[in-house]
């Protein structure tokens, strides 16, 4: 047997879901069992399976701890037991594909949308919370682009394209999970009653070294999304106010206020050359 085969077989065995009592499962979910004794030697105290079990339990406990640390809001919303079930199912379906544990939850919201049965009584709320908490991680330590000099904005050359800091996430939510997450941070548990609101637009960003949640109006969110997508500023503004019937002075005042706030937060970045529109 070559060492590649040994590694593949050992990984398959230790990454399979733990059985009752968090012991190494007798049979894997796929039914393809690894003959552990064929690759691992026993010693005088431990069988081959027991030796592998040390690694398997370490693998699962380490990853479960990491997911628990990263998604406290989701755990509070679902309850610990349901969250545990969700985390184990997610990790079985989506094992880590990154060299850093920091990325472990990057696919959780999308996975949950495809597996609403793990969302307890309110899958939509759970998905919103998972999206918020992943955005929180991105805002905490994601890379930053070069902040746009406000002078640059005064020029507003035709065709000017701006970028948005990569650590900012723009979310459209159905539930006030931003307020819930803050409450959970403070009290340790989710509010009993959750009000279903239609469409909350939220920017998850950082200022200084702290993460903030900032609610946006629909036009503001639309404009930021258009800028991020690479639309020239004047076209992005047009898209933002496309449904609006307000006075142009009122729109101008809004724009001024938004750009002033975004500049203050350092949200706008210089878009690299060839920064064409990335998506419609």
């Amino acid at each position: 047997m070559r060492f590649t085969q040994v590694q593949r077989q050992m990984a398959a065995a230790l990454m399979q879901r733990l059985g009752p009592g968090d012991r190494l499962a007798r049979r894997s979910a796929t039914g393809h069992d690894v003959d552990v004794a064929a690759i691992i030697k026993p010693n005088s105290l431990l069988s081959a399976r027991e030796r592998l079990e040390i690694y398997s339990r370490a693998y699962w406990f380490r990853l479960l701890d990491a997911i628990r640390d990263d998604f406290p809001g989701l755990a509070a919303v679902l309850g610990q037991r349901a969250f545990e079930g969700l985390a184990r199912a997610y990790l079985a379906d989506c094992p880590s594909r990154s060299y850093t544990l920091r990325d472990l939850g990057s696919r959780l919201a999308r996975w949950l949308a495809a597996h609403p049965e793990y969302g307890a009584r309110n899958p939509r709320l759970a998905i919103d919370m998972a999206r918020l908490e992943w955005a929180h991680i991105v805002a905490f330590d994601g890379p930053a682009g070069k902040v746009l000099d406000p002078e640059h904005l005064l020029e507003l050359k035709p065709g000017l394209r701006l970028g948005l800091q990569p650590y900012i996430s723009l979310l459209e939510l159905q539930y006030p999970v931003d307020e819930m997450r803050v409450a959970i941070n403070t009290s340790g548990h989710a509010p009993r009653r959750v009000v279903d609101q239609t469409r909350i637009h939220l920017a998850v960003h950082r200022a200084g070294l702290s993460v903030y949640y900032r609610r946006l109006t629909l036009p503001e969110s639309r404009l930021l999304r258009s800028l991020r997508a690479g639309w020239p500023v004047e076209e992005a503004i047009g898209r933002c106010f496309r449904d609006s019937s307000g006075e142009s002075e009122e729109m101008l005042a809004k724009l001024r206020a938004w750009f002033a706030a975004w500049s203050e937060f350092g949200w706008l970045t210089v878009r690299e050359a060839n920064g064409e529109r990335s998506r419609p």
Binding site: R2, A11, M15, R62, P95, S96, R97
Partner: peptide, 18 residues
């Protein structure tokens, strides 16, 4: 790691020349 999947553990090597 194996086939792009990471265990985030320090797993022992098979001690072979290969």
């Amino acid at each position: 790691s194996i086939d792009g999947r990471y265990t985030h553990d320090l797993l022992p090597m098979p001690y072979t020349m290969e």
